[in-house]
Amino acid sequence: MLKRSIFILGLILIGSFSVLGQEKGVFWKISGNGLSASSYLFGTIHLICEQDFAMSERVSDKLAQSNALVLEIDMDDPSLQMALMANIYNEDGQKITDFLSEEEYQEIRTFLKERTGMDMDMLKTMRPMVLMSLIYPNLLECETKAFESELMALAKTNDMEIVGLESVNDQLSLFDLIPLKEQYRSFYTYADNIEKGKREFKKLIASYKEEDILALLELVSESPEYKDYQEVLLDQRNLNWIDPMARMMKKGSMFFAVGAGHLAGDTGLIQLLKKEGYSLERLNL
């Protein structure tokens, strides 16, 4: 459960929205602007059904040629589990029952009991993002793989350094900017209509496999989590990442792997890097 919670941002995934001038593609080469070696930008989907998972030979080859694997957070950090443990429950003891009606709460309790075997009465103070992680397996209904885990395994095989663009506390703290009431309402919305969530996730996977950035953006534009907080959860993070990416690339070839939604839009990484003077070339998978 704890490992799944780290993927919360990514499963909701896709990024800022601009329908003009966008190309398809989730794998890009970064060059120019004084770089001595090219780096790479790979958009991932954090959890995907095993039968839909495919790691392109080109991706693995470019990773092997790089000096380091750079993820959103360093998932190889030994302090990761401790940070997750410290963020399971609401800091001030707020409960889900403070934000849902008794009828809504009982619906959630029944749903969670049937789907996971867990009793919501024992989880009332658990943070909404962790509760969300409990129902993601119900959206996929399959054995899953995570691109980040597979990339990390390849990196370790090649004795590569693994680093992060932000800390786990940075990522988790983003949820503090969203009122708990809205987070619990979003959780209730998903759990109350799990079939809709399944359909949307299937569309998400299909669009990712087609490398269709615009289709992904259209899906996220309807997402209750991101509708009012896209700037905080995605756009601002993209802006925050540009300087550390630039510093890393000066040291050698970097392989950046982030949620696919961080690539697109006027404040997506592709456009932001171009504005900094870098050349970006799509690489076919």
Rank of each mutant, 00 (worst) to 15 (best):
K3E: 15
I8T: 13
V19Q: 06
L20F: 14
Q22I: 12
K29D: 10
K29P: 00
S31H: 01
A37L: 06
I45C: 00
H46K: 08
L47M: 09
I48L: 08
A54S: 14
M55S: 07
M55P: 01
D61E: 09
D61M: 11
N67P: 00
I73W: 12
I73M: 13
D77R: 08
P78M: 09
S79M: 12
M82D: 12
A86W: 10
N87H: 15
Q94T: 10
F99Q: 00
L100D: 02
Y105W: 13
E114L: 13
E114M: 11
L123G: 04
M129E: 15
S133L: 06
Y136R: 12
P137Y: 14
L139C: 09
T144M: 10
F147P: 02
L151H: 09
A155Q: 07
N158S: 09
D159L: 05
E161D: 09
E166N: 01
V168H: 03
L174K: 14
L180T: 04
E182G: 07
R185H: 08
Y188N: 06
T189C: 10
D192R: 13
K196S: 13
E210N: 15
A215H: 04
L217T: 14
V220S: 12
Y226R: 10
L234P: 01
Q236E: 12
N238D: 03
P244Y: 08
M245V: 04
A246Y: 15
R247C: 08
K250E: 07
G252R: 02
S253C: 14
A257C: 03
A257V: 03
G265F: 09
D266N: 08
T267P: 01
Q271H: 09
L280N: 00
N284K: 04
L285P: 12
